[in-house]
Design a protein around this nucleic acid. Sequence first.
DNA 1: ATGAAAGCGCTAACAA
DNA 2: TTGTTAGCGCTTTCAT
Lengths: 349, 349
Amino acid sequence: MRDRQKSSSATIRDVARKANVSVATVSRVYNSPETVRPETIEKVLETAQSLNYNPRLAARALTLKKTNIIGVILPDLDGEFFHEIIRSIDLVAWQYGYYIMISASHSQRNEVDSFLRLMSQGWVDGVIMMVPVLGRISFPLLSKIEIPIVLLNLPDSGEKYIQINVDNYRGAYLMTRHLLEHGYQPIAMIQGPLGNSDADLREQGFLAALKEYNLGIEIQGIHYLERGDFKRRSGYLAMIRLLSLPVRPRAVFAANDEMAIGAYNAIREHGLQIPEQIAIAGFDDINIASYQRPKLTTVHLPITELGMTAAENLIAAIERKDESRQEVKKIILPTGLVIRESCGCLNHN
Amino acid sequence: MRDRQKSSSATIRDVARKANVSVATVSRVYNSPETVRPETIEKVLETAQSLNYNPRLAARALTLKKTNIIGVILPDLDGEFFHEIIRSIDLVAWQYGYYIMISASHSQRNEVDSFLRLMSQGWVDGVIMMVPVLGRISFPLLSKIEIPIVLLNLPDSGEKYIQINVDNYRGAYLMTRHLLEHGYQPIAMIQGPLGNSDADLREQGFLAALKEYNLGIEIQGIHYLERGDFKRRSGYLAMIRLLSLPVRPRAVFAANDEMAIGAYNAIREHGLQIPEQIAIAGFDDINIASYQRPKLTTVHLPITELGMTAAENLIAAIERKDESRQEVKKIILPTGLVIRESCGCLNHN
DNA sequence: ATGAAAGCGCTAACAA
DNA sequence: TTGTTAGCGCTTTCAT
């Protein structure tokens, strides 16, 4: 009458009973084994195994107020980036014994806010969040959250969170200089969408390099800056406008690879050669960049590092007790040039 | 002396006290509002809001033995598939109020088994799992898990789980027939890795179509089946072997798009034209398939449907009480042809 | 080194 | 309709 072992999994009490110890001892075996006698440990562990016992994490979470889950909120990213970010976060999370809970924001869902509410329901110990544009994030709401947050790729907003960025400015600056050094002029840029901080910084880097050469976006009254929206088609359209200029740009720097590929198409349609007549450079180093013909020269984004750094910092913040949990910190990860065929500079080096 | 409102979030008791009701009433407001008076509901909700109260899910999980989290275990997928699967699962999970916990299996981690253990720690109500090859999965371990499991894209193993597959056989069959109908002969196939069930089924579909035309993989003593490993390079190498045959195949069906793209390169290197001299078809319909020149004809995989169906079935199984939780069910999702340029059949239709 | 017991926040009988 | 109370499975003082 006493062995009504529920077929569902065993609890700490079952183990304690069967091993003739108290539940406290069983608990200790798992949490502070150094305080319990070796033989006891062994006995408990054996019993546990025979009962197929595993500590129920939810119960643990209740007492400890810690779930060991970290939330990851991502916008509508390119599949490749998405994958890479998750992978890298997962990699370090796993190492530290954390699980990851994901929200891939679909366009039909109020991504950030709605998920943040869930976060506040206590499922996660911390959050890694990437928001596409500053306006999309609600700082008042964010500030209600009492758990550590790591913000990815957000413009400098003066807000006090751990922020990890990629060096858009420098990447653009270096690429532009590279193009300039090889004598290309005029150089045009196909910009990203208005209000997108990545786009803004890339433009600034571009302009800074031009300025060093005493150039600007306007030469002889011709304007060499076109705006796109990061999508392929906008690159195509922007390129068409650029091609109809009285003086064609000798090189075009697209603010991302997708637009660069769009530009490829426009150029091909006009029967021009890349890089012989027009050099092209992109930004992001997405997978297909290297499959283009000619292979696209671009700026590499350190996605893996971004994810790993985010996870490391978040976990550090979580595990740093009380004080200074909401650390303020800004990390900028370096970008690097990937010189391939489309800029025509490969063998001049 | 009594208002030591901890700055950390409020509990159900705080709300009850402040609203002058019992905790049971507060709980009811959230779980069965129809059993409580409207005015009371309002009062409770207001108080809750003023206290910034949210039910602590971990506590709820403890009593209910239900976390509303579903686990997703994926192998080392292509970024695009990965993204798509997660997105689609997330989409329906969200709808039903579930969260998703992910494990992206890195090669350095014993993916399945180790994560399954975590699953058994009670964090998740069910698991969606996709394993690349049958051998990689441990059924003995699986059978210890007491929660519903949905298996994705697994070969028919006779095991009793909910399984959702994609119709590899039929896709390959249809594509082969398509090629045959347009008079191509001989047709070669670049196969996937040994033991991979997707690959096997694709081969079977291919052979079935050939047989209908009274053909086989061997014509005049020449063998038209080459094995690859689903990676681009193996497609390239296989194609080179195919090109050195005494009688070149008129069409080549690669068991996936990556290998088809590898084949493109080999063909180009030999100075041959696609599809004029050799028609090519792939399988998977990955993104870059349409960026190739000529655009790759391929078989479309219903990834979104796969993820959504998986999530729907898993949740149904979770919510179906006790009886028949471990339903046995096998769903096969249809694949479809995507006729583009590389098969040269576009305008014959 | 080990045990007894209180409590984490919530739900669900059972009573009223 | 609402309140009381006993757990859910675990950790952690405080005793022993």
